[in-house]
Structures are given as structure tokens and as C-alpha cells.
Design a protein around this nucleic acid. Structure first.
Lengths: 189, 189
DNA sequence: CGGCTAGTTCTGTAAGGAGAGAAATTACTA
DNA sequence: TAGTAATTTCTCTCCTTACAGAACTAGCCG
């Protein structure tokens, strides 16, 4: 049997805490606990892990791990890593936090906002031809549509900016304002 | 009995569609369907509505409406509006989309990221004093902590910028980059 | 070509959440 | 102060989802 040499039966406290918190933070947004925990564990691991090790360290069923790993792969938050002389599959996490954020944002956008935008377009079209609908409602649907479209376009542009530069922008915070040619200084509307 | 004069028994198609979509879009993120539907209905309404009207138009139970309205109030996405000669409470939605976005963002941040940041601080402290934890894991926890803290600070700064100006920034998109004094032009990793 | 081992899919169960309807409370009116 | 309208809270049910364990499939060794 292939004993892992530097195997730890119980995780260091800080790691366990991290995994636990990450786990139920995941629960609070769309991802289920197991998926988030596995992700956390891999994120902190200094080497790729296989399904058995994960199951052992987290105490969750193989079936569950299999499905969770599959989900993490579709989010591109982890990747398969072949290990010499071991036919089992190993996995490691994306450790670049910016990548991680954009992957998550991308995934959520695809699942949540894109369909919403599409639906909104339909509503907008519908509203234009419907005589029963009030002017107000029509206006609100339009406003929402424009807003969402603008934000969507913005997001699309932002993720094309190289991370380091974007990070610079973020670190600058509101100082960016001081470099812009502002038409007016008093806060309009 | 207080008949509503301009009462519509069934909603215009576009409105119904909007409500339906908004409803299950809500379901896809943290908010439950009823809450999101009520919000959508109020957003499109040209006048404040009371609980009865809402129940009638959406076909959901009064108890449910009561709870949902309470939740929407805590999110500050709707407000109570007194109506002359009617002792029932009426509600109207925030229609400024920027307000709406910031309120939602604020709420989610409070519930989801603030606790996570707090937990992360604890983990970081723990990791520093734990001899069992690997250098790698400690580094990753630190990296995560710094990243989250930076983003948090950025968010905090952004919401203090007047909406109109922020909107301008967003409409500019990546053009903002051209106004900045960049140290280097080639994309740094 | 049997026996293993890794991995996946299937199935049953248990927990959580949403929401309906009843009961209780509060506020207003006569 | 009784009576009624409006709203909230409580409780019960249904539905969804997470997850464990079992059964199944596929690759690899002798």
C-alpha cells in the first residue's frame, strides 16, 4: 500500500479553521460546503492531493469528493496534476488570488447575470409592444436594462486589463479621480 | 370595502415576465423567490401598494408577504409610505438603480464578506503562532488576508464617491487607464 | 483473463428552507 | 369598550438539496 510519507492525521489548527470558515462562507453564497472546504484545503496545501487524502483529512465521502472536484474543475479553481509513479489523480488549486476572483466572478456572471440580461431584453421588447403596460413600468424596465448593460460592458472591459495594472488602480482607490479631466466638480444629481 | 379604482386583475405580460424572472434570479442568489418577486412588482409600480394588492397580484400568502416586506425593509430596497385616508401600510421601491445596487452590495458585504474577513484575521493570527503549519500554508493565508483587506478598502472608498461621478468612471471603462501616469507600459506580470 | 484499485453514478435518507394557513396581537373606529 | 380591520407570529407541510453508502465501470497488474 502506498503510505504517504509526510501524512498528517489531523490538520494544523489554523488550517482547520480556515477550511471550516471557507466552507460555510461558501455555503452562504452559491457553493455548497464540501466544495468550498475541498477548495480551501487544496489552496493551503503545498503539494497536489488525491481524492483519498482529501477524504481522509476532511472526513467526507468519496462520492461527494468526486462530485465536488468535478464542480471545482468546471469553475477552473483547481486543476488535475499527474504525479510520477502514482496512477491516482491529483489536484492542486489556483493560488493566484486575482485569477481566483475572476474565475469566480466569471462563473457567477455566466450563471446569474447573463440569463438575467437576456430575460431583460425580452421584457423590454415585450414592453414596447404592449399597450396595457404603464409608461412608468416601461421606463423602469428600460432603465434597468440600460443599467445592467452598462455594468456588464464595464465588467467585460475590466477583466481584459492586465491584473497588475488593475491592482494598481484598486490600490489607488479614489485617487484615480484626481487624474481625470472632470467637467464639473460639484456632485451632479 | 375599499375597492381599488384602477385595479388590474392580471398583470401586463411584460410586467409578469419581469416579476417572474427577477423572482428566480433572486432565488439563484441569496434572496428567496417571494422577496424578489415583491421587489420586482414594487419596482415597476407607479404607485405605492399595500399587502393585499401585492398578495392578489402575485398570488402568495399574507404571512409570506409580511415577512418578505420586512426583509426588503431591512435591505432598504423598499420603504413604507403612508397613504391618505387608508390605514393600511403601503410600500414603494427604491427606483434609483445605483442606490439599489449599493444597498444590495452593502447588505451582502455585511453578511458575507465582513465575517469572512474577521475569520481570516483570526486564522492569520493563529497561523503565526502555530509551529505545525507549513510555511506555504501560512503564506497563502497571509496572501488571502491581504487581498481581501485591499478589496474591502477599495469597496469602502468607491461607495463614498458620488454616484454620478462613479457612473462616469464606469462609462469610461478602460479609457481611465489612458489618463493615469503609468510607470511602465508593457503589461507587468 | 481473473483480480485490484481508482473513480463515477445511482439511490435512499436526512436536514433546511420556503411558504400556506391558523392563531394571536395590535391598532383603529364607532 | 366592543368590534373589526391589518399585520405579525406560529406551526405544519412540502420540496429541494446535500451527502453517505452501495453498486457499477474502467483501467492496470499479475
Amino acid at each position: 500500500m502506498t503510505e504517504i510519507t509526510d501524512r498528517e492525521d489531523s490538520l494544523p489548527v489554523a488550517v482547520r479553521q480556515f477550511v471550516l470558515h471557507w466552507g460555510d462562507m461558501g455555503g452562504q453564497w452559491g457553493v455548497n460546503r464540501s466544495v468550498a472546504q475541498i477548495h480551501a484545503l487544496l489552496y493551503l496545501s503545498d503539494r497536489p492531493l488525491n481524492a483519498d487524502e482529501i477524504g481522509e483529512k476532511l472526513g467526507i465521502a468519496r462520492s461527494n469528493i468526486s462530485n465536488s472536484l468535478k464542480e471545482l474543475l468546471t469553475w477552473k479553481l483547481i486543476r488535475r496534476v499527474p504525479v510520477m509513479g502514482d496512477r491516482r489523480e491529483h489536484f492542486e488549486a489556483e493560488t493566484d488570488l486575482w485569477q481566483m476572483l475572476t474565475r469566480i466572478a466569471q462563473g457567477r456572471k455566466e450563471r446569474e447575470v447573463d440569463p438575467a440580461v437576456a430575460a431583460l431584453k425580452v421584457c423590454k421588447a415585450e414592453a414596447e409592444s404592449d399597450p396595457r403596460i404603464s409608461k412608468v413600468a416601461r421606463g423602469r424596465i428600460d432603465a434597468m436594462h440600460d443599467f445592467v448593460t452598462t455594468m456588464d460592458a464595464w465588467h467585460q472591459e475590466m477583466i481584459t486589463i492586465p491584473p497588475a495594472r488593475l491592482m494598481m488602480l484598486i490600490k489607488m482607490g479614489r485617487k484615480v479621480l484626481s487624474f481625470l479631466p472632470l467637467g464639473r466638480t460639484k456632485t451632479p444629481q
